[in-house]
Amino acid sequence: MYKTILRRFLVLIPQLFLISVVMFVLAVNMPGDALSGMLDPNLPLATIEQMREDMGLNLPWYQRYINWVGGMLVGDFGRSTAHMQPVLDVIGERIWNTFSLGVYSLFLTYLIAIPLGVLAGKHSGTALDKAIITYAFVALAMPTLVLGIVMIFLFSPIGLGWFPLGGSVSAVVLSTGTPFEIFLNQLHHRTLPAISLSLVSTITIIFMLRANVIDRKASDYVTLARSKGVPSRTIFGKHILRNSLVPVASHIGLAIAFTFGGAVFIEMIFSYPGMGTLFLDSINRRDFPVANVIVMFFAFLTALGVLLSDIILTIVDPRIRIR
């Protein structure tokens, strides 16, 4: 099995390489470049042209690509043109935000989804089950964005005021608060986006869990246990629940990938300064060094997530083995 994992990792490299080439070509062909935003009647064209030359923007794309890859191999991920900082510094500022939001959101996802899914499965066919399914469908039907907007208008200071308007932390607290206070404040800022982000993931898990529970309920070993006289609660807890949770655990990899990927929309609505808004900004400002690295990063994360799912699945379910 370790051989397979290693093989998967090795295959990852050419895959990432391919993606990076595609992204790079895409970026180079976009109308406008990093200096477009500086158009200003006070800036003569000759200066802008000179700056282009200096920044190497006039080189053919394969040349720039080679420079970029070469740089990456020695740890130099390029400089952001908009932030005038090394790309790693720029991303470093934001990565904690996205990461913490993702983790928080995953936590909430499972917190909400597992009880709901189990309940729906256990009481399948009843009104409770129908209610949960309907909730799931409605949540599925509403585009994430609309959900986010609704949340803002309900819970932010514009509505009930339970949560702040946006941002990741309050500067005042950051300046004057204890680390614990800062942590709480950050949590406070992240709750609304995390809930919005998690709502869609919960649906897949609820359905999966529900289906699994229903399956197990009708299975042979459960019937056997019942006929032996084992109390319902034990049957449920020991047999059904544990076995149902297994595929859910394997889903975590995909959930990770989805959460980080889907964050772009959410971050935009909540003005949350994470990698998603960084990506949007860098596309708008044609700051390609940053955009390329972010895309690579997410691709890597997605691949990792899928791999993680497969590995967990193999570990917990002996029936499946990676070929």
Partner: peptide
């Protein structure tokens, strides 16, 4: 599948 779909579409 590894390509971040949303980002590519936006780009």
């Amino acid at each position: 599948t590894m390509i971040p779909a949303l980002m590519f579409i936006i780009a």
